[in-house]
Simulated scan of single mutants.
Amino acid sequence: MTDVARPPFDDAVARALAEFDDLVVVSMSSDEIPRVRASGVAAPLAELTAHGAFERDELLVPGWREDDPPVGVVVYTPAVVRRPAPVILHLHGGGLIAGNADSDMPATAELAERTGCAIVSVEYRLAPEHPYPAALEDAAAALRWLAGPDAPAALDGDRIIVAGVSAGGGLAAATALFARDQGGPRIAGLVLLCPMLDHRSDSESARQMAGHGSWDRGANATAWAAYLADVEGGVPPYASPAVADSLAGLPPTFIDVGSAETFRDECVAFARRMWADGGDAELHVWPGGAHAFDFLAPWTVLARDARRAREEWLRRLLHRI
């Protein structure tokens, strides 16, 4: 049996995958979820706040329903605020089974500082303890609070960009679909970084990258099974955005993904469907990028180019709204 042809990794990304093999999650079983959770390392407070560029506060906001538990959010407000700042509503990665509100934060803080934004990061509930729709409802509750009268005055609830990494990117897309269909708050833009959009994980790239990279279809299947444990019948688009009948009416969207990763084809398909439905999407497929390559190896030329592209897109968006 011959090996499946795969696109090559960027040389620097390949070295990072070999060096940080403890961060590589392939063929994960449900028994390994505690190990994946424990592998997350909290960044120092100085990095979380971009060395004092932001003030950090932990708050509780009302849950989606009256009897739901409150949702934790971490608010990063620019240290100097002359007028209400646009807000990145951040949804962290971790396969919907790991991570916390401070995950991915140094990179998100860098993006926010360079574009004049504040950040609200959501401590959404994780599967398998809290399967769908818990994470979606927590994200929707945070969005509703942020757009309402009880959010801090320094945050501009009319300029909300919903962003997410990996599972958080899929959750961001699901939150936008939910807000569109349920008459929720207006979202000014979506930033989907290597988003986890399709529970089926049967694309060509998913098959190509099985057993390789930093997150493969085996790990993906375990994560989706945990998240969808209580779903009966068809999987709803608010869980798996790729199955939505239409992507019309979504806000302007930035999508990026690596060429050598599991989610490549589902991200390309999502952008193509947005265009077909009359939407505004910018897609970047970074040659040689593994899953979440710019978080795994932020010092690489490829990572710097990827971060610069999303920064430029967000600046253009903010000039329009």
Rank of each mutant, 00 (worst) to 15 (best):
V74R: 14
L91T: 06
P84E: 05
H92I: 11
V87G: 07
P69L: 14
G94Q: 03
G99V: 05
W64A: 05
I97H: 04
G63P: 15
V71N: 07
E110M: 09
G72H: 13
V75Y: 06
L89M: 14
V80Q: 08
P69Y: 04
N100R: 09
G72F: 09
D104N: 06
P70A: 14
V87I: 14
A85D: 01
A98V: 02
G95D: 02
V71Y: 15
G94K: 12
P62W: 11
A107R: 11
A79P: 00
L111T: 11
P69F: 01
I97P: 01
L96G: 08
P78E: 14
V73M: 12
M105S: 01
T108V: 15
D104F: 03
P69C: 01
A101V: 00
P86L: 11
V80R: 15
G94D: 08
V74W: 08
A98Y: 05
I88Q: 15
P78M: 10
A101C: 08
A98T: 03
D102P: 00
R65Q: 06
G63Y: 10
L96F: 10
D102R: 05
V75S: 13
R82M: 01
P78Y: 13
P86Q: 12
P86K: 11
Y76T: 01
G93R: 10
L96D: 01
V75W: 11
P86V: 05
D102N: 07
G99P: 03
V87E: 09
L96Q: 07
L96E: 04
G63M: 06
A107P: 03
G72P: 06
A101L: 06
N100V: 04
A79V: 00
W64G: 05
H92E: 04
A85N: 09
D104Q: 06
P86A: 11
V81A: 13
G63I: 12
D68Q: 09
P70R: 13
P62C: 14
M105K: 00
L91K: 03
T77G: 05
P86E: 03
P84F: 02
R65H: 14
V74Y: 06
S103Y: 00
L96K: 10
A98E: 01
T77I: 00
G93S: 03
P69D: 13
